Amino acid sequence: MTTRVMLISPATGSALRAARFDDGSPLDEAGVRDARAAAGALPRADLAVTAPAPRCRQTAAALGLDGAEPVSALRDLETGRWRGRSLDEVMAAEPEAVAAWLADPDAAPHGGESVTALTDRVGAWLDGRAEDGGRVLAVVEPAVVRAALVHALGLPAAAFWRLDVSPLSLTELSGRAGRWNLRCGRPLAPAEPKAGTE
Rank of each mutant, 00 (worst) to 15 (best):
D104Y: 08
R81I: 09
P10G: 05
A41H: 09
V98Q: 03
E89C: 13
R55A: 12
P95E: 13
D28F: 08
A61W: 04
R85K: 14
R44C: 02
D22K: 00
A53C: 01
G13F: 04
P52K: 06
A60L: 08
T2C: 00
T79F: 09
Q58K: 02
P109R: 03
T12H: 01
D23S: 13
L47V: 15
T59D: 05
A108T: 06
E89I: 11
A68E: 02
A92Q: 13
E29Y: 01
D106N: 13
S72G: 09
P54V: 01
R57H: 10
D28H: 08
D22V: 00
E89F: 13
D106L: 15
R17G: 02
L77D: 14
S14G: 10
A97L: 14
P109C: 08
R44M: 06
W82P: 05
L63W: 04
A103M: 07
A108W: 08
V32K: 05
A38S: 11
A100M: 10
L16K: 01
D76F: 05
F21E: 01
A18P: 00
R36Y: 00
E78Y: 04
F21L: 04
P70S: 07
S25V: 01
A37M: 02
D104M: 11
A68G: 04
Q58D: 06
R20K: 05
A61N: 02
W82N: 06
A97K: 05
R44T: 13
V90W: 10
L74V: 09
S86E: 08
P52C: 08
T3R: 00
A97D: 10
L47H: 15
R81H: 12
L42F: 06
R44L: 11
V49C: 15
A15G: 03
L77S: 12
D88V: 13
V32A: 14
D22E: 03
L63V: 05
A73L: 10
T2W: 00
P54I: 00
V71I: 14
P70N: 11
W101T: 14
R20L: 05
A62D: 03
G80W: 09
P95R: 09
A30D: 11
D22Y: 13
V71P: 04
A39V: 00
A39N: 03
W101A: 12
R20Y: 05
G67D: 14
A18S: 13
D46C: 07
G24K: 03
C56S: 14
R33K: 07
E89N: 12
T3S: 06
A38C: 06
R36I: 00
D76R: 05
E96D: 15
R57T: 07
L63A: 13
A73R: 11
S86Q: 07
R75W: 03
G40A: 10
S14Q: 07
A30T: 11
A45N: 01
L74H: 08
M6E: 12
D34M: 07
R81Q: 12
A107D: 12
S25N: 01
A107Y: 09
A61F: 04
E94L: 09
A39T: 02
A30V: 08
T79Q: 11
